[in-house]
Amino acid sequence: MNDTPAPGSGIDATFVRRWLDLATTALDREADRLTELDSPIGDADHGSNMRRGFIAARTAVEQEPPETPGGVLVLVGRTLISTVGGASGPLYGTLLRKAGKELGEAETVGADRLRDALRAGVGGVAQLGGAAAGDKTMLDALLPALDALTGALDAGGSAAEVLASAASAAEEGAEATTPLRARKGRASYLGERSIGHQDPGATSAALLIGALAEAAGATGGGAA
């Protein structure tokens, strides 16, 4: 992680592609664990879903690399929608597509725009899936990440610091889903029996935010 310089003046397409690489690597490595988490309260496919989608997204980006950070995110989001399926495909696809759209045509953006993008993406997820904080979904990692990012930014942290705090918040948020009772997604069918298991989608969300910190040269959340 020492060989990846912090994004200096701003976040560009190369940075987002580095994130995509790191996220894909992390999801590939953690796929079995995510599927394992999706077994007691789901249908045992979250890891293979995410791996399939991100490998396809990386391939799509490599084949025709967009020149803006927003362009890369939109392409990743579209590819997820077209290759993942399940609940996570449209939700993560929307997260990244909305985030990318928020960044518009800019070739380089600062951490504040990244926050706007994340806010737009998370808003899209909430709207599409209808879940709220505490429903034991990916939002329970994404919302704390957004809050932490916003707070760190307001406190004047560097991009790497800002993303590192988002990564720890996401990871804590994911872990904090364990005692929750699911109200959305297929874990909700289990009622009380969903309590005591960490949510797979919150866990993969923490991996994605961790990869963001890692891409910025902060210590990786890849070990979420």
Binding site: D43, S48, I81, S82, V84, G85, G89
Partner: peptide, 11 residues
């Protein structure tokens, strides 16, 4: 048909 236990994609 989607993947096993995974809904198909819109395409």
């Amino acid at each position: 048909p989607g993947e096993v236990f995974t809904s198909p994609v819109p395409d």
